[in-house]
Simulated scan of single mutants.
Amino acid sequence: MVKQVSIGLIFCFFSICKLYAQDTLKFSISVAGITIGEMKAVKTSGTDQDRYQLESKVDFWFFGKIKALVSTDAYYNESQFLQSTMHTRTNKGEFLSTIKWDRDRYAIEAESYKYEHKDEIIGPMDYSGIKLFFQEPREVSNLLNEHYGKVALVNKGMKGYYEVNVAGNINKYYYENGQLIKAVMEHPIKNYVVKRIL
């Protein structure tokens, strides 16, 4: 009887693991070769939805102390992007950007430091910025950016990297065997490099 219960529990455990598979990646964040923070990306795959989470922490000096904790939470139903929430906490204030699918369009309310954007985008999207950490954008020409709430163009660079134009900032993503190894990010405050460490 005890043996049957144990086998049943083991079967149940592996069934749950199969239903909710999780993939975790870790990155360092650096400026001019100096590490200023870290980033963790998590993908949880369920039976009917995939959840993507991204959290980054930075702490550095640039004409004053800059500290930031940025958390992004996004959901997909099969291949369609459904919604995202991006919460930014800094010593300059707190900001929130949300994107939600409603019937046939996305309702967008994006806010960050000295930036506000409210809009609608008609029609479904199958790729957003957070997916860049888990899936090489081989057949992707545009994506929905969770931070600014805008559609960004994706171009394959001549040197093997992908360029993503986000509100005028050109970010470069480098992949090996389909996995992201490095991203060079343009930012209004300071450009930085995201490098995979796990």
Rank of each mutant, 00 (worst) to 15 (best):
S79V: 15
S28N: 11
N177K: 05
Q22N: 04
S6K: 08
K18C: 12
E38G: 15
F14Q: 04
I197E: 15
I197Q: 14
T90H: 05
A167C: 01
I7G: 12
G160D: 03
Y175W: 03
K172F: 01
E163H: 03
V164A: 05
H147W: 06
V154C: 01
Y115V: 00
D50Q: 15
T85P: 04
L54Q: 05
H147P: 00
Q135S: 11
I122A: 11
V2K: 13
T72M: 11
Y106F: 12
T88G: 09
K118F: 04
V2H: 10
V70F: 02
L198C: 14
A152D: 02
N177T: 02
A21H: 09
T88W: 00
K195V: 11
I181P: 04
T72D: 06
A167K: 06
V70T: 03
S45E: 14
G129F: 05
R103Q: 14
A110H: 00
E116T: 12
D119G: 05
I10H: 10
D102I: 14
V154A: 04
Y173E: 01
I29C: 09
K40M: 15
S30I: 04
I122F: 08
Y113N: 02
Q49F: 15
E111V: 01
A167V: 02
N91I: 06
I10E: 05
K118V: 08
R51M: 15
N165W: 00
H117R: 07
I66M: 06
Q80Y: 07
I99Y: 14
A107I: 13
A152C: 00
G178M: 04
R138I: 14
G64L: 05
F95C: 03
L198T: 13
Y173G: 02
Q83F: 15
T88P: 00
V164E: 03
A21R: 09
N142K: 08
F95I: 03
S56E: 02
I66V: 13
L198W: 13
N177V: 02
Y174E: 05
K172I: 01
M125C: 01
M86D: 12
Y20E: 09
P137D: 09
Y161G: 00
G93Q: 09
L25A: 13
E139P: 08
L19F: 12
S84P: 11
E94K: 08
I66E: 06
I7V: 13
L153S: 10
L9N: 13
Y162Q: 00
E163Q: 02
C17Q: 13
G149C: 05
E163R: 04
T88R: 00
G64S: 09
I16T: 12
L82H: 06
K100L: 13
S15F: 12
F13T: 03
D59R: 04
I189N: 01
L180Y: 08
H187T: 02
S15K: 13
M1K: 11
S112M: 02
L25R: 15
E186L: 03
D119N: 11
D59P: 09
A183V: 01
R105T: 02
G160C: 01
I189W: 07
Y192N: 04
L180P: 07
A41Q: 10
L9Q: 12
Q22D: 06
D73N: 14
K65F: 07
A110Q: 04
A21Q: 13
N169C: 03
A68N: 00
Y75D: 05
R138V: 15
L25S: 13
G37M: 11
N169R: 02
